[in-house]
């Protein structure tokens, strides 16, 4: 089943290699940009869905409190709330689930196209769907003195800059897309948000570490992908550059938060969002749910 995605991707990557003057790095860059652009609608849909879910958070919390001893009733009420708001609770997951195999296929296509060993090369056979691409094999997988099929540790010393770049760009992307940890009603950091925030440290370290043992070609893919992700979030107005630079986030109009059909629920959430922003800590971009909880707690 994977071949249905991996084979066309391997073919496109190899064709790009031919079109771009037998330059595999350029091919990886262009291919990664194309894939990120192609999956942009999924990213937008995912964002929209999760935003709607978040706007419902105050009501969900209220329901949880109300039916804390009746799970069945809670589930029914939650579903009713989702119906009322026109939200599919899995709406945020599905785009991600669609993106995941694409990302894995991109990853595998790059590994296959780079093919530096017999095991890798034999797996490339039968994957090139366009006639004439066979005679490009094996692709020239060297770049500025580095063998792209080998990890940085077995390349010239300057190849070690790539895991570092992976680390930095992953951190930057996480930092720009994950909000600062807000305080909960009792003044302590929200544990879920804290865990999320800690990922901004763990993920870059993890990817940086993996990049030490992955091939240099994959590190290039990670770096390019991260940079494109940062650009995408910036163009969508979601990158929190001000937060990253220690500046207060620019106030956003409520209409930017509320998207889709203007149901009464969303309108209510939007108004709470504006209220929360007015009163929240300048670094907090977690507006409606938390603030609403806080108000109720008081």
């Amino acid at each position: 089943m994977w071949d249905l995605i991996i084979n066309p991707f391997s073919t496109i990557l190899t064709a790009l290699y031919a079109l771009l003057g037998n330059n595999i790095v350029l091919a990886i860059v262009v291919f990664t940009i194309a894939i990120r652009l192609a999956t942009s609608p999924l990213l937008l849909q995912q964002q929209r869905s999760t935003r709607k879910m978040q706007e419902l958070q105050p009501k969900l919390t209220k329901l949880k409190e109300k039916y804390k001893n009746d799970r069945e009733k809670l589930a029914q009420e939650q579903m009713a709330l989702y119906r009322e708001a026109g939200i599919n609770p899995l709406g945020g997951c599905l785009p991600l689930l669609v993106q995941l195999p694409i990302l894995i296929a991109v990853y595998q296509a790059i590994i296959h196209a780079l093919a530096g060993t017999p095991f890798q090369l034999i797996d490339l056979s039968g994957r090139l769907l366009l006639p004439g691409l066979d005679n490009l094999v094996p692709l020239d997988n060297t770049w500025i003195g580095m063998d792209l099929t080998l990890p940085p540790t077995t390349n010239p010393a300057y190849a070690l800059a790539l895991p570092l770049l992976v680390l930095v760009t992953t951190w930057l992307q996480s930092k720009l897309t994950i909000p600062a940890v807000p305080k909960s009603a009792d003044g302590k950091p929200d544990p879920t948000a804290s865990m999320t925030a800690s990922m901004t440290t763990i993920m870059p370290l993890m990817f940086g570490f993996f990049s030490l043992s992955f091939s240099v070609g994959l590190s290039i893919y990670f770096v390019v992908s991260n940079i494109i992700g940062i650009v995408q979030y910036t163009l969508m107005g979601k990158a929190q550059w001000r937060s990253l630079l220690g500046m207060a986030p620019a106030p956003q109009p409520a209409t930017q938060v509320v998207t889709g059909k203007a149901t009464p629920v969303e309108t209510e959430a939007a108004s709470k969002s504006v209220a929360s922003k007015n009163g929240a800590s300048p670094r907090t971009t977690q507006p409606p749910g938390k603030k609403n909880n806080k108000a109720r707690a008081k």
Partner: peptide, 9 residues
């Protein structure tokens, strides 16, 4: 939203 997004990511 972002928290959910990040966890999933």
């Amino acid at each position: 939203m972002s928290r959910q997004l990040s966890t999933r990511t």
